[in-house]
Amino acid sequence: MSLETKPNVARPDDIYEALIAAQAGMTEAESLRFSARLVLLLINQIGDDTRIKAAIAAARESVPTPGSGSDRPA
């Protein structure tokens, strides 16, 4: 299955700005809870276990494993 990884919304900058604005004034803990809630809502909208698991795997690939020696950002 092919996972869409290129921007797939008409105005990605507007979406990014809305995401940042939604977290304005939050503590780090509040921001993490917000992000987790948003992820769960979007997962529910996708509704396809295979596609969701592929997205999780793709996201994990870009994050260094502790102790891997890679300190570069994703």
Rank of each mutant, 00 (worst) to 15 (best):
N44R: 04
S70V: 00
V9Q: 07
S62F: 06
I56T: 08
D71C: 06
A59R: 11
A21G: 06
S62A: 15
S62L: 15
A57S: 09
S70G: 00
I43R: 05
A24T: 12
A55F: 05
R72S: 12
G25N: 06
T65L: 01
R72N: 09
S68N: 04
A21E: 12
E4N: 11
D14T: 07
D14E: 14
Y16V: 13
A58H: 11
S62V: 11
P64M: 04
R51L: 15
I52Q: 01
M26Q: 12
P66E: 02
E28C: 08
L40F: 13
L42S: 06
E4L: 11
S68R: 00
A58E: 12
G69A: 01
N44D: 13
G69H: 01
I20E: 12
I46H: 02
E28D: 14
V63C: 04
P64T: 01
R37L: 11
K53D: 13
G69V: 00
A18Q: 13
A58M: 05
P66A: 06
R33K: 14
R60T: 06
S62T: 14
A22N: 09
A55D: 07
N44G: 12
T5P: 00
A57N: 06
E28M: 14
N8Y: 08
K6Q: 13
A18W: 07
P73A: 04
T27A: 06
T5G: 09
R33N: 14
P7R: 03
I56P: 00
S68T: 00
A22K: 12
G25R: 10
I52L: 01
A18G: 06
T5R: 15
E28Y: 09
V9E: 04
T27V: 00
R11Y: 07
M26N: 09
L40V: 08
R51I: 04
D71T: 14
Q23C: 12
L40C: 08
R11S: 12
Y16E: 09
F34M: 05
S31Q: 13
A59D: 09
G69K: 00
M26L: 15
E30H: 03
D71Y: 08
K6M: 13
D71E: 10
A54C: 01
R33L: 14
A10T: 05
F34E: 03
A54T: 02
K53M: 11
